[in-house]
Write a protein that binds this DNA or RNA. Structure first.
Lengths: 122, 122
DNA sequence: TAAAAAAGTTAGATGTGTCTAACTTTTAAA
DNA sequence: TTTAAAAGTTAGACACATCTAACTTTTTTA
């Protein structure tokens, strides 16, 4: 099972691939506010478990498995952000920050209710 | 600054003091689902920082400082639980579980909005 | 194209929180 | 009141995530 931290790395990689075409160690570190060695250590772990591919001294790419997880988390992220913005009138920046933490810890049940609320705009 | 984990210990101690009159190492461990040595280690840290008092081989008591923090967290816990139950129709058990995690990570801004929603019953 | 800068890696340390195993103290009971 | 059980403690190990410092590779640029 992925840790919260590794989920964050996957999400960051997906975002960087989308935004910049490729995810480099440096960019991942900037995005997550950690130093290179932390990124390398996380990427090694993700590589071992088949979530990413990484050729030494080069960039990182998501595997199918990694992409699936990243997309799921990102979707959660967007849904929770929207919920916080629309229902609680939280500003964008704060909503994103909080969503980023909530997405990792929330139960499936609660997430589903939030998703319904957002979809149905209750 | 307290870690999430130590906040959980404070909250547990407050609840046990209320329910049982005193908080014993064993009970704290049962409550948090960890073994005695983990509790002892946490209590040592809380003692060093003035959140609790602990005489060897005896029970633990909150200091004023510890009680203030515990009460604040517990209040948060109750508010978030109520929000999840009332607004999202989450069942009691799930609501409590999620609240227990959310209470530690949520921003002040978002918490305030949740508290308003619960109070005003929007 | 050689030198300098940037990016990536490795080694090793630190902090936090958990555990098991072994031991000590306290409490309960025979 | 001695002994057995329960509770608490200590020592030491492990996993995770981070860091700095030193080193290697790649990229840029003069």
């Amino acid at each position: 099972m992925l840790t919260q931290t590794l989920e964050d790395y996957l999400e960051a990689i997906a975002i960087l691939e989308k935004e910049k075409g490729k995810a480099r160690i440096k960019d991942i570190g900037n995005y997550l506010k950690v130093k290179n060695p932390s990124v390398v250590s996380a990427i090694n772990s993700l590589t071992e478990n088949g979530y990413v591919q990484h050729k030494k001294y080069s960039y990182v790419t998501l595997t199918k498995k990694g992409r699936d997880v990243a997309e799921e988390i990102h979707k959660k992220h967007k849904t929770i952000t929207k919920f916080l913005k629309d229902f609680l009138k939280i500003d964008e920046a704060t909503a994103k920050e909080d969503a980023c933490k909530i997405e990792h810890i929330i139960s499936h049940k609660t997430y589903k209710k939030i998703a319904s609320a957002v979809e149905e705009n209750i």
